[in-house]
Design a protein around this nucleic acid. Structure first.
Lengths: 223, 223
DNA sequence: CGTATCCTTGAACCATGTCAAGCAATGTGG
DNA sequence: CCACATTGCTTGACATGGTTCAAGGATACG
């Protein structure tokens, strides 16, 4: 399992020895759907590498409403932001699809950062990328309509998780989760999804979304 | 001028020698209000240290509408995100108050990152902080009303730029700029500011905003 | 196979955006 | 230093996208 990590970009600069120091096999655990990985407000003692599965990263807003920040999948790391900034954890993480996560403690991270400058640079690149995406998201949520954002979100899910051979998205979310990405009410998502269906842009089978007309969706999202 | 930089946190780990290597006096220039420092879409050749003045960092959205990401002041750095991520510049920067900026090229930055691990860690901390703030902002723009966000923005400006001895904010923005932080229409800002005035929360003299009741503003912002 | 969760639809309401028009303030060039 | 142009500010009237509430149906899961 461990040796497989090296192919993933963020660990690519590590030597085999460093990699073993970083992650012990016994720090990797299975998580079931619905399980909380970490909860906002606590102090960060480390972060997690996602070996498999899908993790939902979200903030709890006012009156308990969740705002989904991103979904992490195999190869991603979660919870590292608070470790680096030294602040308390400001997001929560919940398992959306059964996962195997490897815990990496803060000390190991900082040891590596001190002794492997390429790793530090790679990590800087990763955080900077995420910040860029956050800035795009801010602009869109501030300026686009709910319909545009829904189209965009569907396309984001496609590019991030892919589609199967029948054009179904490889990730299944509840209507409420879609609403919590977009920043709208569940009912609005339901109505707009059914609009998209009537316009033959998508097909819906429960939580599975099949893409019928990507070009039209891009046009609506105005990408 | 240069020796003064060391007190600022992001450069605190640099030796005097490194600092001189990083910033030559002649890389520091005066910028007048309204001037564009850099423009989105271009390739980043370096970033800027803000020696004095105020810089507006924004993204141009759909139909040219600007979304303000943040304001940078003395001691901050701007444009570093794209240098680190290696992507094209994804924001623009415009002078809001006459400024002196020092240019630092990419090569110097990466040289430092390679040879001074503490500097790399400090920079990671800075980017991580900004990412955390971006996540908070996403949640608020997605969940709060315009009124709540306006109150919050006024308080943000207070904590970021301070107030003078008459309780006036130390930064003056147009109504449109306030709207472009909050993600709303100029007219909405005007109406809500006048609500705040009628409720004796603030006083307005042109673009200058005087805070009369911070507690009430905090309550509205629900901080 | 029953309970909890999720989905759907309708109706009413309201916060916010848009458009239009006039005024104030600010800046610029002769 | 004035006159004109530009930009910013304000207000009203109106349109509407989106939320909220409510109630019933469907689906998933132990």
């Amino acid at each position: 399992m461990i040796s497989g990590l090296k192919q993933y970009s963020i660990f690519k600069s590590l030597t085999d020895y460093e990699l073993e120091e970083l992650i012990f096999e016994d720090n990797c655990n299975s998580y079931k759907k619905g399980q909380i990985v970490y909860h906002e407000g606590n102090r960060a003692r480390g972060f997690y590498f996602v070996n498999s599965g899908i993790i939902k990263v979200f903030k709890t807003g006012f009156e308990g409403k969740e705002q989904i920040i991103r979904f992490a999948k195999a190869g991603d790391i979660i919870g590292y932001r608070s470790v680096l900034s030294g602040e308390n954890v400001c997001t929560s993480a919940k398992v959306n699809e059964d996962a195997v996560l490897c815990f990496i403690n803060s000390e190991s991270l900082f040891f590596l950062l001190k002794h492997n400058s390429q790793f530090a640079i790679d990590l800087l690149k990763l955080v900077s990328n995420e910040l860029g995406e956050a800035n795009v998201f801010i602009t869109e949520i501030a300026q686009k309509t709910v319909k545009e954002r829904l189209a965009e979100t569907i396309l984001y899910l496609k590019s991030s998780f892919g589609i199967d051979n029948e054009n179904y998205l490889n990730i299944n979310l509840t209507r409420e989760e879609l609403a919590n990405i977009i920043g709208t009410a569940t009912e609005s998502v339901i109505r707009l999804l059914s609009d998209f269906k009537n316009e033959n842009l998508i097909e819906i089978k429960g939580r599975k979304i099949k893409l019928l007309n990507v070009t039209a969706l891009q046009k609506i999202a105005s990408i």
